[in-house]
Design a protein around this nucleic acid. Structure first.
Length: 274
DNA sequence: GCTGCATGATGAA
DNA sequence: TCATCCTGCAGCA
């Protein structure tokens, strides 16, 4: 569940499972954390939130459990006495008043004090979270025009977590498609209308992915694809992983290119270069 | 069983 | 920009 919207949804679920409850069990697969598990017993989980692709579990003594799922991590909720049947490797288990949340496969987990969290090597470089930091279209537009961002190609820029935290590889393709922009365009080159459209789409596509569990395709287009019997991966997105299929807007064949070592999908007609 | 790829991120060059 | 690591899994013998 890699990109910001999925992590936010995971944080919501873990929050509902644990928040307001006191831990009666904690377990970590990481040697440097194992010794601290006992000190969390009896602590109340105050909130579980996310910042970009990082998930933060907060305790009432000011400590914060940082976890990053990278490509593989997954949180499972379950009753304390019922072991989930996954073939995955357990990395974190938190149990509060009989309710458990288990993190599998993730390898980047650490425990911090709230005061030192700002020094975290990853968090300290993140830009604002598109879902939780109150980013407005006007602010997003202004941020894209900041000197450190304005002359960079959008394809690379949208993956840079210091611009906006949470956008990942599928959001990059989807945002650029809905904004009608080519990945080589730079914020500084865009006319005001295009820049505004980009700011709107950065927010709207990310929020839709959150609201609709990762679906970024337009509702009616997705419905059309579903009616044709398309698999989820082909109706979930407007362009991502749809190379060779016709663009919903113009019928042109969707193309796949590699940019910044990641795959990027685009409609060559709706997103012309320059 | 093996290979390659993946919604991520880093560090060396 | 590329190789590398993290881990799981789809696709193919």
């Amino acid at each position: 569940m890699p990109e910001g919207p999925e992590i936010r949804r995971a944080a919501d679920r873990v929050h509902r499972q644990l928040a307001g409850r006191r831990l009666d069990h904690a377990w970590f697969a990481f040697p440097d954390l194992a010794g601290q598990a006992a000190s969390l017993i009896g602590r109340e989980v105050t909130a579980v939130d996310s910042w970009g692709k990082a998930l933060l579990t907060r305790f009432d003594d000011g400590r914060v459990l940082y976890s990053h799922n990278q490509l593989y991590g997954v949180w499972k909720l379950h009753d304390a006495e019922r072991e989930p049947d996954t073939g995955r490797s357990l990395r974190v288990r938190l149990v509060a008043e009989g309710r458990a949340a288990s993190l599998y496969s993730a390898s980047d987990v650490s425990l911090w004090d709230e005061a030192t969290l700002k020094d975290h090597p990853f968090l300290s470089r993140l830009g604002p979270d598109l879902l939780t930091h109150g980013v407005t279209e006007a602010y997003a537009r202004d941020r894209l025009l900041e000197p450190r961002f304005r002359r960079r190609g959008l394809g690379g820029l949208l993956l840079d977590q210091s611009l906006f935290a949470g956008t990942g590889n599928y959001l990059r393709s989807e945002i650029l498609f809905f904004a009608g922009l080519h990945h080589a365009s730079r914020p500084a080159d865009l006319e005001e209308g295009a820049l505004g459209r980009l700011a709107v789409c950065v927010l709207a596509v990310t929020r839709q992915a959150y609201d609709q569990a990762g679906v970024t395709n337009r509702d009616d287009w997705a419905a059309t694809d579903r009616a044709r019997g398309a698999r989820r991966r082909h109706w979930r997105f407007a362009v991502f992983e749809r190379d060779g299929l016709p663009c919903h807007a113009c019928g042109t064949s969707i193309e796949r290119v590699t940019l910044a070592s990641r795959r990027l999908y685009l409609c060559p007609r709706c997103q012309p270069a320059r």
